[in-house]
Each structure stands twice: as structure tokens, then as C-alpha cells.
Design a binder for these strands. Structure first.
Lengths: 188, 188
DNA sequence: ACCTGAACACCGTTCAAGT
DNA sequence: ACCTGAACACCGTTCAAGT
């Protein structure tokens, strides 16, 4: 197994743990066990837990922005973007009731090393920017500050729907909340 | 110091820790240090961490339902309930960027002992019930299922606004999201 | 009734040592 | 370049022992 494989295996195992139980529950010894090395070896690839957490969050943001960028390029994305976007936050619930990595890390905010906090903020910013871009497409004459505020609110509301659905262990709570957002007009 | 005083001191210290860092970061040794006893003594009052967590969540729900019950009795609460309610979730952010105990525990869902999970669900239910009661007052003829769904969505959206504001360390994000909910009509 | 010290298996981290 | 064993100070929990 090459170096890169071990590093990738560490990130894959760690990602699942964070989305299942949060940054605090991420354990170097457990990651090592899942990968088949010793915990000291995990420290070789990621010197501190903060380094690993920040790397996970950075990759997570990159994956999402890549996907969202593709959506924006679709000719008729204006019609279906809301569905595609909410599905991104629905899918981890389907996968063993997991959560958005940034959402669960936001809850752990004061426990996070600063390098991890920074990546959480970047994830939030990337989502708000994308949502604002979509809203602007749909209403080109709307006030920029108002668009920004609505984008933030949509992101917060979807994260909240995911949080509550997870707390209840009931994905229907997510669907019902999102539907109510749509009815209210918060979500186009 | 009487027995009761020690028990109360434990709950007070533990509550602050959970709202600051979550259930996972709650430490018997740290609680003991804050109270001025040894960790084994904390175990005398709360045999397991799950017992302590469940007791905290139960009291938290009781305090909120007591407060909300009072609001419902106000003659003109229909006009101001939204403001009072959102302020409940705004205040912990003001207090060292803390979070709603149920919100942060919902994020830790799969890590929680079942007795703690149960109390988290009760907190959510209590909030949704109260919101549904208020919505029914304002629209007596509305469909019950629709009211229930909107109540859940309001709760989820407010929790999400708190989560994101905390993740950013910026209370303005909470205020802007809530304002956007109001503009959209999700929040009356 | 309430508290404690000591032990147990965990944790992240460090570091000298191996290959 | 990559991995390991051993040590350190932490953690929740248990329990016999103190008052």
C-alpha cells in the first residue's frame, strides 16, 4: 500500500466518524484500527487532530463546491436547483443518520482548533455564495444585501432541518420542514 | 453545604459545559473541579454521564415549557410571541456563544445514551407543540397537519439560525436569518 | 448519607527507535 | 519515507474504604 493510499484511507475513515459523531468523537486510535495501522502512524500523516479535522473540512467544501458549480452550469438549473441542493443535505441522513460535516462541527465550535473553525466558516461562505448566485439569476434586479440575507437564511434553515431530523432520527422531519420552507416562499 | 447544594452546583456547572461544548465535552473531572469535590463524588449524585445528561436535558425542557406556558397566557401574546420565542434562542449566543442544549445534543445524536436521546426528543416535541398552539390561535381554521408541519419547520429554522451563527461566531447571522424567515412569512 | 483514593481501560500527543 | 512501542497526562467508571 502506497503512502497515498494510507492517507486516503485515514481521511475516508475519519470522515465517516465525524459525520456520525462529530469532531470530538473522532479518535486517532479508532481511525488507526479501521485503517490497519497504529495511532502513532496516523500522527505521521496528520500531526495533530486539528490538522486532520481541517483537511477533512477542506476536502468536504471542495467536493460540494465542485458539485454546485456543475449545477449552476446546467441550462435549466433555475428550475431544479432547490431540489438538487436540498438533496445534498438529505443524503447524509439516509446514510446511517449522518450529518453535514460543517453543521456538526458548527455545534462544536468552541471546542474546535482555530484551523478547523476557519474551514467551517469557508464551507458556510461557499454555500451562501452559491445560493446568492442562484437567487440573483432568478431575480436580477433584487437588492444584493437582501439576496445575501435570504441566502444565509436558506442555508441556516436547511441545516436546522437536518439537525432536527437527526435529533429525532426521522428523515420525514427534514422533508416536512423543507416543504414548509417552500410553502412559505423561503425556498423558491 | 447540603447535599442538595452540591447536586445543584453539579447541574449548574455541567449545564454551562454542555451548552458551550456539547455532551461529549462534558467531563466529570472538570465538573468536580468547578464544584470543589472529586469526580467520584459526582458519580455518587449521577451514577453515569448519561444520568447527568438526561437530568440536564429534562430540567432544560421544564424551564422552557414553564416560560412558554406563561407567554401563552398573556392577553396579547399573539402579537409578540415570535419575538419572545426567537429571543429564547438568541440569548445563549450572547452568553459566550453558547447553544441550545437540545440543538447541540441533536448534533451528537448517535453518540448519546438512549436516556439522553429521549429527553432531546421531548424538548423538540415540547417546542413544536407550543408553536402549533400559537399558530392555531392565529389561524383557528387552518389544517392541523399543516400547522404541525409549519411548527416543526419554524423550530428547525430557528435552531439552524442558531447553529450557523454559532459556527460563525457572529450573532448577526442569527438576526439576519430570523428576519429573512419573517420576510418570507415562515415566521408570523 | 456523602465523599475519597486507587485502579481500570480509554484518549491525543510525543519521541526515540526501527525498517 | 513510513511505521511502531512506550511513555505522558487526560477521560468515564468502579469499588472498597473512610467519615
Amino acid at each position: 500500500m502506497s503512502t497515498n493510499d494510507t492517507r486516503e484511507a485515514i481521511m475516508d475513515a475519519a470522515r465517516l466518524m465525524v459525520q456520525a459523531n462529530g469532531y470530538n468523537a473522532l479518535s486517532f486510535r479508532e481511525v488507526a484500527k479501521a485503517v490497519g495501522v497504529k495511532s502513532a502512524s496516523v500522527h505521521y500523516h496528520f500531526p495533530t487532530k486539528g490538522d486532520l479535522g481541517a483537511a477533512l473540512a477542506r476536502r468536504y467544501t471542495e467536493e460540494l463546491t465542485g458539485y454546485l458549480g456543475g449545477l449552476l452550469a446546467l441550462p435549466d438549473s433555475g428550475e431544479r436547483w432547490a431540489q438538487y441542493y436540498t438533496d445534498v443535505f438529505r443524503s447524509p441522513l439516509l446514510n446511517d443518520n449522518r450529518m453535514c460535516m460543517a453543521g456538526i462541527m458548527a455545534a462544536e465550535h468552541s471546542d474546535l482548533p482555530s484551523e478547523v473553525r476557519l474551514e467551517v466558516n469557508r464551507f458556510i461562505d461557499a454555500n451562501v455564495e452559491w445560493l446568492a448566485a442562484v437567487l440573483s439569476k432568478r431575480a436580477p434586479k433584487a437588492d444584493a444585501a437582501l439576496i445575501q440575507r435570504q441566502a444565509l437564511a436558506i442555508f441556516a434553515a436547511i441545516e436546522g432541518a437536518q439537525l432536527i431530523a437527526r435529533g429525532r432520527g426521522d428523515i420525514a422531519a427534514f422533508d416536512q420542514s423543507v416543504e414548509a420552507y417552500r410553502v412559505a416562499g423561503l425556498l423558491p
